[in-house]
Amino acid sequence: MLNSPAIFQVNNRADARPYRMAIHHTELETPPGRQPLPEAERPKLETLREQLQPLKELPGSSIEALYAAQELFSYVPPEAITMIAEELNIPESQVFGVVTFYTMFSLEPQAPNVLRVCRDLSCHLAGAPKLIGALEDALGVRHGHNSPDGQFTLKVVSCLGLCDMQPAMLVNLDQHGPVMPDDVPDLLDGIRNGAG
């Protein structure tokens, strides 16, 4: 079965790719890139080193270490990857492997409010595409990017396990749903005013 030609047949069809491009679908975007830490942020690296000390006693805690870095810097800068590898005594390649594996980690700076909108089946049927469109319009960015005012990062993600609140979204880790396109302005205002 491994040698079945099906896989190659599909890819070899000259007409396979263009259709792909022509379609608007809500693709998940996490473009990998490595943004070095700005000079002003460097002192925080010592804070990170302190926070990593207790994790040395917990084998396998690279996810927690990455969360600590992301909380400090809003993303995981290359300097943090190097430091986590040193402090936890694991290869840097392993830390980089982990940070790129999990969708909640970002290699690029994020805004203080990360909006994660579900685009999977139940939410899709309940109107997720319209919700995503309304958020994109209100924020003035395509999903996968930070809003010009620096307040929001908009992400489109897989099922959040909030299907009873379809269409659902997270504001950082706070659950919201059902969110209709008309609810978007109030929701964003609420977050801006610190109620999110």
Binding site: D120, L121, S122, S158, C159, G161, L162, C163, D164
Partner: peptide, 11 residues
């Protein structure tokens, strides 16, 4: 780790 679309029982 419940992440199957349409499932929220464990939550």
């Amino acid at each position: 780790d419940e992440s199957e679309p349409g499932t929220y029982v464990n939550r």
